[in-house]
Simulated assay, not measured.
Amino acid sequence: MTVLVTGAAGFIGAYTVRALQARGERVVGLDNYNDYYDPQLKRDRVAALCPDADIRVLDLADLDALTVLFDEVRPERVVHLAAQAGVRYSLTNPHVYVQSNLVGFVNLLELCRHRGVAHLVYASSSSVYGDSATPPFSEDQRIDRPRSLYAATKAANELMAYTYAQLYGLRATGLRFFTVYGPWGRPDMAPLLFSRAVLEGRPIDVFNHGRMRRDFTWIDDIVAGVLGALDHPPADTPPHRVFNLGNHTPVELERFIAVIEQAAGRPAQKVYKPMQPGDMLETMADTARAKAAFGFEPTTSIEAGLPRVVDWCRAYFG
């Protein structure tokens, strides 16, 4: 069966394509290679992780082009990872989030519905919990008080997918990712941002004066969760489920920086700043539901993962 992976040149996308190919799936990807961060990193990521992948250059907001692709490829399953990412960027560039995360998602839902896709797995985010939930975040907690437009679009995706499941029987699974990191990761996120800066002797901005905790989740653990969810479509009525994919182990920001310092062999130049608009003080995933449904159980600590990120940054960025 053919699996369509959107955002295939992205961080989680390229690793997912590689994992699907490794188990013998026919995979077709799409990505618009936008310039939110350097498109060359995306091209290099694909060349390193899935060089023989069939990845089409296409924007989800282009319904006509997306329809042509669906009719050519006829995917039985879709892993939807494409989105305009970033909490802080959404404060200054709201319209790109509407086009990619809302218009693009409706286009995808419509084609999945009309072309008989058996299972849609789509990326949500831990950001949806906003001010409504208390750690550990469980899927049953409210998500109606987002702290950013990005979070609001992801919460909207969950509501939209539920509606299509309820109205049309489209089987859909949403995955709330918790701060995913690893080699070839996003350069705007703290693991790469801090690692590069410490290696290069540049200062890092430490928001809320370091009083923050994040549930950092290793990329291989996340991909195992994506494939586990894909292999276990919902049998509920309506056929829609949401899962947390996180490490269930929040890490103090200062400890996170200390691990990077040790791996880099030099101290960080820390510039302490107040809390940024849109940020959350703490994230922590309750992963019991994903474990029960498909055996999701992360195994990688930051002490094991972060040095590999630092080594990759040293090699890739010089």
Rank of each mutant, 00 (worst) to 15 (best):
L170R: 06
R213V: 14
N93P: 09
M189I: 15
E200W: 12
R142N: 15
A61P: 05
A292D: 13
P274Y: 07
H114S: 14
D52C: 09
L120K: 02
R211P: 12
V242M: 01
V98D: 11
D236I: 13
A152Y: 01
F317N: 15
G210E: 06
Y168F: 15
V259L: 11
V242A: 04
N208H: 13
G228Y: 05
E110P: 03
H209Q: 14
Y33L: 10
S301W: 10
A133F: 04
L41R: 04
F294N: 06
F294D: 03
H119F: 05
L91N: 09
A61V: 09
R211C: 07
P250S: 04
R308M: 13
M284T: 14
G225N: 04
P94Y: 01
A19L: 02
E297K: 07
I219E: 10
V3P: 12
K270A: 13
L4T: 05
P277F: 07
V73F: 08
P307R: 09
P191H: 00
P187W: 03
A151Y: 01
A288M: 12
F105L: 00
Y37A: 00
L111C: 06
F296N: 03
I204W: 02
I257F: 02
P277H: 05
A197D: 09
G278W: 00
I219A: 12
R289L: 12
A19V: 07
D140S: 15
R23M: 09
V3S: 11
D71G: 11
M212Y: 08
A235N: 15
H114L: 15
A82F: 07
T163R: 09
D221Y: 03
V310R: 10
E110R: 09
N107L: 08
V57D: 11
H232G: 07
H248S: 15
E200A: 15
F256Q: 12
L4A: 02
S126W: 10
R308W: 08
P94Q: 01
A133Q: 04
P274D: 05
V73H: 12
V46H: 08
G225P: 04
V98R: 12
D311A: 15
Y122R: 00
R171G: 07
T6L: 03
D188F: 10
Q84Y: 07
A9S: 06
T67Y: 04
D205P: 05
